[in-house]
Amino acid sequence: MAAIELKNITKVYRDAKRKRDLLAIDDVSLSVGNNEFLCLLGSSGCGKSTLLNMIAGFETPTKGSVTVGGKPVDGPGADRGMVFQQANLMPWLPVWENVAFHLRLKGWRKADRRAAAQEYIDMVGLQGFENHFPAELSGGMSQRVGIARALLLNPQVILMDEPFAALDAQTKMDMQEELVAIWQKQRCTIVFVTHSVDEALVLGTQVAVLTSRPGRVRELIGLDLPRPRDITSPRFNDHKRHILNLIREEGLQQRQQVAAA
């Protein structure tokens, strides 16, 4: 059974000011198998974050259904871990309390929370920063806390909304490598939203190239490149060229549509 099923998702936004409907997502169907690493690739405004938010339960589709582990999504919940573009840490809690926030909600005792958090703090390489506060962390470290916090839920699926977009190039590469290592070790399913072709190709087992306005799946590409992925290899660049061509065609079509209208 697929970990995540998106069936015929359509999303229409009502533009109240102009009194018309805006078709944001048009009939998207995607099926993500267990242990897959799906990258949703598209330009801004293509609805990739909206799709992710539907799996998270923050938004509901106008038509179609979303199921995670066979159960329809009816709101946010701890069976899915989410890592946001900004780390969204509680600034009043130290790193370990942020990682163990879920256990705080479940009413665990402090000593137990502390012990449980340590495993995940070690996993993302934040030993020595357990008692730091979010304001004392760099962007990369904050995202590590966010990832550890999502992992502690031990979720079937982890949803990531451009988590590395605000990081510098070097930090981004390190984080991508570590994320792949964690994904291989934890054997979870990841849906990762990005606008970077390179990032999608470095991380994913599958890349869904989305068109913009309305959002549709232009092509679903399976990647069987060996890991760690060599971004200079000919096969990597074949995929990259292919995807860039898709994106270019899309842009061209859109401009023609705008010109015709």
Binding site: G75, P76, G77, R80, N88, M90, F101, H102, L105, K106
Partner: peptide, 18 residues
Amino acid sequence: ADRNLIRAASMMGATEQQ
């Protein structure tokens, strides 16, 4: 209050009271 913190917490299963 930062809406994103509320989103993050509800993603971790927080009830309204929590």
